Simulated assay, not measured.
Amino acid sequence: MNEPREWPVRPLDARSLRGLAHPLRMRLLTALRHGGPATASQLAAKLGESSGATSYHLRQLAAHGFVEDAPEHGKGRERWWRAAHGGVSFDETLLKDPDPEVRGAADLFLHEIANQRTQELATWLATRNDWSEAWRRASDMSDWTLRLTPALALDLVEKMHELVESYRALAPEDGTADTEQVRVHTHVFPTHTD
């Protein structure tokens, strides 16, 4: 479980993006954000990677300020890691950066986010029968097609974000029965009709 603290959102810049835009690093950071502090060995087992690879990439994430030591969890020589931020914000201008390496990292970052969300949804579908009927009824896979201007689409995004954020204040206290971590994905993008 994540520690009960307010986590800031970190804006990505060209340097930090290059430090994060790697599939394993992004998976490690996601695992720490969703599952709480862990060791490189625990993360390796969870993600099907070698502990050498997870150790190396955790150190790279630490060098760029995405993860930090969690010494309150360590015993002996074990090094525990935790996420340093609750999330990142992506600046669209990174896709137009004059440096092709930054543009490539931005593209990789966005595609990896899409891959992770697809994997989360696939995992839910594969394990949904392991959940209670109440949780199965409370899940949702909806989609809508609307005709909007860019201004209306942006308004929709902002209102969805406000609504989701408003539920943080309603979160039950630790130990409340039948409380689980819930993932909410939103996607708003234009499509051609032809």
Rank of each mutant, 00 (worst) to 15 (best):
E72V: 05
P11Q: 09
T39A: 03
D155P: 01
M160E: 09
Q181W: 04
R18W: 00
Q60N: 08
Q60Y: 02
A44N: 10
V67A: 01
L146Y: 06
Q119V: 11
A106V: 01
H111R: 15
A171V: 12
N115P: 02
L47K: 11
R5C: 10
F66Q: 00
E68A: 12
Q181R: 08
Q116I: 14
W7D: 05
Y167I: 03
A138I: 11
M1F: 03
Q119I: 06
L32M: 05
R136H: 07
T39P: 01
L108R: 11
P8F: 04
D143C: 05
V67D: 00
N129C: 02
Y167L: 08
L148Q: 12
R18N: 03
L17Y: 00
L12M: 08
G175R: 06
E68G: 10
H185L: 08
E162C: 08
A62G: 04
A138K: 12
I113E: 03
Q42V: 04
R82G: 03
E158H: 11
E112I: 07
A105F: 00
P8C: 02
L170P: 04
L110N: 03
W81K: 04
A153G: 10
Q116P: 02
R82T: 13
L47G: 05
T145Q: 10
D194G: 15
G175A: 08
N129R: 12
S41F: 10
W135K: 13
L121C: 03
S142Q: 11
L47Y: 06
A171D: 12
S51M: 04
D97P: 01
V9L: 12
N115Y: 06
K96T: 14
R33Q: 13
R27Q: 15
Q42S: 10
T54R: 00
T127W: 08
H85Y: 13
R183G: 13
E112G: 05
Q181S: 09
L170D: 15
S51D: 10
H22T: 04
T123P: 03
